[in-house]
């Protein structure tokens, strides 16, 4: 009888201890080293033109053409390539994120052309990071990743990818910075995958063809950076 009660007591204490445990903060581990899909995101689209140049160049058109030109180059390198939009349609930030988040082993690259910056230079950004969660935040259920903080577990791998890509761009597009930057780019925040933004300067150019002429150098830089990232995703460049 005593023995039976002892076992019941032990099991009860164990159960209470188990329930009292803090949930693991980030139970979902990023997939490292098994990247096979590139999700290319031509920014803006539809009613959202993005940056607008003095001669009427629109960011949404330029980045779509750039994205289409990248597809065959990356496919030749063995990547499966997905676009978040095929034509001039508006997709929400969440719809674009959903494309990458539903794809295991994806790498996300959002393409932009800014209004400022020296012509022909390119900058790469990883997400700037998240403010600490408030102390009174509801405890998170294990296995769940908050949508608005989905990038958090991938920040380190995104920084590695950004460094590789910025280094390749600096070699091919003179004047580009050597080191990547971080910024609170809205599109990156809820991507559950390594994710970077690339901004090419700029729509202020008179002729779109001058920017489109940079596409081969851009494609080569992206292809080399992705190959290096896939080969050694853990190593800091």
């Amino acid at each position: 009888m005593w023995q039976r009660n002892h076992w019941l007591l032990t099991a009860g204490v164990g159960l209470v201890a188990l329930l009292a445990q803090e949930p693991t903060p980030w139970p979902i581990e990023p997939i490292e080293g098994d990247y096979r899909t590139v999700v290319l995101d031509p920014g803006h689209g539809g009613a959202d033109s993005g940056a607008r140049g003095g001669t009427g160049l629109l960011e949404k058109d330029l980045v779509l053409r750039l994205a289409h030109s990248l597809v065959p180059v990356l496919e030749r390198e063995g990547w499966r390539v997905m676009l978040t939009r095929q034509g001039d349609e508006l997709r929400s930030f969440d719809e674009r994120a959903a494309v990458a988040n539903a794809e295991p082993g994806a790498v996300f690259l959002t393409l932009h052309t800014g209004s400022t910056g020296s012509f022909g230079t390119a900058r790469v950004y990883s997400f700037a990071g998240f403010a600490p969660e408030p102390a009174d935040a509801n405890p998170r259920s294990p296995g769940l990743l908050p949508w608005d903080r989905a990038q958090q577990p991938y920040l380190e791998s995104s920084r590695r990818l950004a460094a590789l890509l910025q280094s390749e761009l600096a070699r091919r597009l003179p004047g580009s910075p050597e080191a990547p930057a971080s910024a609170a780019v809205r599109q990156l925040r809820n991507i559950a995958a390594p994710a970077v933004a690339l901004e090419l300067a700029s729509v202020a150019v008179d002729d779109a063809r001058a920017l489109e002429a940079l596409a081969p150098a851009l494609a080569e830089a992206i292809a080399r950076a992705l190959a290096a990232f896939r080969a050694a995703p853990e190593r800091t460049p």
Partner: peptide, 12 residues
């Protein structure tokens, strides 16, 4: 504000 990651980040 000129649209773009660089210009918006500089503003903020």
């Amino acid at each position: 504000t000129p649209s773009g990651i660089l210009s918006e980040q500089m503003a903020v």
